[in-house]
Design a protein around this nucleic acid. Structure first.
Length: 555
RNA sequence: UGGGGCGUCGUCAAGUGGCUAAGACACAGGAUUUUGAUUCCUGCAUUCGGAGGUUCGAGUCCUCCCGCCCCAGCCA
């Protein structure tokens, strides 16, 4: 990976400063809700939290914020753990669940009731909303706000005992209905949910709200720096209120901007919609910005980590260019991927002067970036296939690939010259008759003449066939997540985000392909872990190569 | 007309009163190249949302203004 210095960010600087005046162990946490799969936005948070802990020789907990049994599932906690491990982080024994704290949280609630700082409310959800007031007008006190401590205690115990139906009662904090910060207008602490929790089963029928759970969980775990996204900035006064009233350890919360990436959406709700409506295969569809999708697509975890380093941490809402992610992926793969040849859209080339039945084994370099990667043999024979777009019957001046009467080099093989173009009755080019120059074996000319173009190719008799899937952005719109610019997500779906080439021609060495490769001049590809089976391979295009020629012809 | 944030190059982003406002991506040129890849050079903010002010000195401090984002779930 490149030696770009990791930029400083305001959180890191702050910790640096704090460490100058006090000795303590930095303790962070990554707190996902197990209600969906992790995506690249979570990777930013994971890299920040685990990264800071690593950097300052501290600790980072993995904690599942599992306070809503209706949405959460064990399958997600499993998937999340896999994704974090794959990304390259290790929580050791530091794995926790907010549900582990349900007893403690219940006690906290009792404490607040005893202090006269919480009450049981009988208002319906609709009434609570009405009483809350609006952004510019204060709210009104609930008529149940002044119940006695004793009454509240009895009622809350009855809630816990399951004596009330869902929605009939809630426990609320007693703060101030006139505060400008809506979170402080007597927020709900506990609600009745007669649901089976994936970890606590049917032990509880009342569940704490996130706001009543998160800050205290951080406190219980002695988190020093609770890092979260900007939208929780105005929840901080509430968390502080709980911590102060409960007189427990006080972590400091620091907010940073969540990641936005152009041409993609990072909203769990919308991602779920794509899956449920069948616009993608599943959460791990290679076009998805999920970690499982990127893993299957072939993005190296190192590249994602590098990306997270480079985008930095700040408090300004910003949208990162997808090209930066792709740059990181290419940068990594360029160093590591074995070069091979594959022809996606074959055009038959017959070498008229090449002996029929002859086969030569050409030496091919595995990775010019890595001398230790060695070479392999590639069979060459009279009939080869080249890429259709590498031939033009009437080429523009700057085109230096094959054309009538032109010479071009077949990589690692010979220089060939196009003598004749064969067409079918529809006028389509179906075959090229060429001659090869026997003096140019392995590709270099003896007479010093310059051959500018170099093409990839596959020997017809030795071609290995496989399916290849080409991906591009899922959305046509640059900001599909912006509801104003793009109210109808479905309308902006890119119909060409997946192109399947059922029978691409690959060099025979790919029969036992594993991992990632560079298909010369085409891009980086990897074996799809889901769709490949014994005897039938599917390759995913991870990312194209940079293509300046494509830019030239676009103009 | 409530509360909380944010505004530095096309996109991210350093910068915490003092040398010519880092770096990356993108973009544009050029060199090398048996991948139009890689690599390597070069260019790319006389100016930090705007206007005043403080100061010998301001992107950094003060005042006012403008713009953008978030909050009215018994979601997280």
């Amino acid at each position: 990976m490149s030696e770009v210095e990791t930029p400083s960010n305001f959180i890191q600087n702050k910790i640096d400063q704090e460490l100058k005046s006090a000795k303590f162990t930095v303790h962070t946490r990554f707190p996902p809700e197990p209600n969906g799969h992790l995506h690249i936005g979570h990777a930013k948070s994971i890299c920040l939290n685990f990264g800071l802990a690593n950097q300052f020789s501290g600790i980072c907990n993995l904690r599942f914020d599992d306070t809503n049994p209706n949405k959460e599932d064990m399958k997600y906690v499993k998937a999340i753990q896999e994704d974090i491990k794959w990304l390259g982080f290790d929580w050791g024994n530091q794995i926790f669940y907010a549900s582990d704290y349900f007893n403690q949280l219940f006690e906290f609630a009792i404490q607040l009731i005893n202090k006269g700082k919480a009450y049981v409310d009988d208002l319906t959800p609709e009434q609570i909303r009405e009483y809350r007031g609006t952004l510019s007008e204060p709210g009104e006190n609930s008529p149940y706000r002044d119940r006695t401590v004793e009454e509240n205690l009895v009622l809350f115990q009855k809630m816990k005992a399951g004596e009330f139906a869902e929605g009939k009662k809630v426990l609320r904090a007693k703060i101030d209905m006139s505060l400008g910060n809506l979170n402080m207008r007597d927020p709900v602490l506990y609600r009745i949910l007669k649901a089976t929790h994936h970890r606590t089963g049917n032990k509880w029928c009342i569940y704490p709200m996130y706001d009543f759970t998160h800050g205290q969980s951080d406190s219980i775990e002695k988190i020093t720096h609770s890092l979260c996204t900007l939208e929780f900035e105005d929840h901080r006064p509430l968390y502080n209120w709980f911590l102060d009233e409960l007189e427990i350890y006080h972590p400091q919360q620091i907010e940073f901007a969540r990641l936005s990436l152009n041409y993609t959406i990072l909203s769990k709700r919308k991602l779920l919609q794509l899956v449920e409506e069948g616009h993608v295969g599943d959460w791990d569809d290679p076009r998805m910005p999920t970690l499982s999708g990127m893993r299957r697509r072939g993005y190296p975890p190192e590249a994602i980590r590098e990306f997270c380093e480079r985008i930095g941490i700040s408090k300004s809402n910003s949208t990162v260019d997808f090209a930066l992610l792709e740059h990181c992926v290419r940068e990594n793969l360029n160093q590591t991927a074995t070069r091979v040849m594959a022809v996606l859209r074959p055009l038959k080339v017959v070498l008229m002067n090449y002996p029929e039945g002859q086969v030569e084994e050409m030496d091919a370099v595995n990775n010019p970036e890595d001398p230790d990667a060695g070479t392999r043999k590639m069979p060459f024979s009279r009939i080869v296939y080249i890429e259709q777009e590498d031939f033009m019957e009437d080429p523009p001046k700057k085109f230096f690939r094959l054309g009538p009467g032109r010479e071009v080099r077949l990589k690692h093989a010979y220089v060939i010259k196009c003598e004749e173009v064969i067409k079918n009755e529809l006028g389509e080019i179906v075959e090229l008759r060429c001659t090869y120059d026997p003096e140019t074996r392995s590709g270099s000319t003896q007479d010093g003449r310059k051959v500018k173009g170099t093409l990839h190719w596959i020997s017809a008799d030795h071609a290995h066939k496989a399916e290849v899937r080409l991906y591009s952005h899922l959305f046509k719109h640059a900001n599909p997540g912006d509801e104003k610019e793009c109210p109808d997500l479905k309308a902006t779906l890119n119909p060409d985000s997946l192109e399947i080439i059922e029978e691409a021609l690959l060099e025979p060495s790919l029969k036992n392909a594993k991992g990632s490769y560079q298909f010369l001049r085409l891009g980086y590809f990897c074996v799809d872990s889901q769709k490949s089976s014994y005897g039938s391979q599917v390759f995913n295009r991870i990312v194209t190569l940079r293509d300046t020629w494509a830019k030239i012809i676009k103009k």
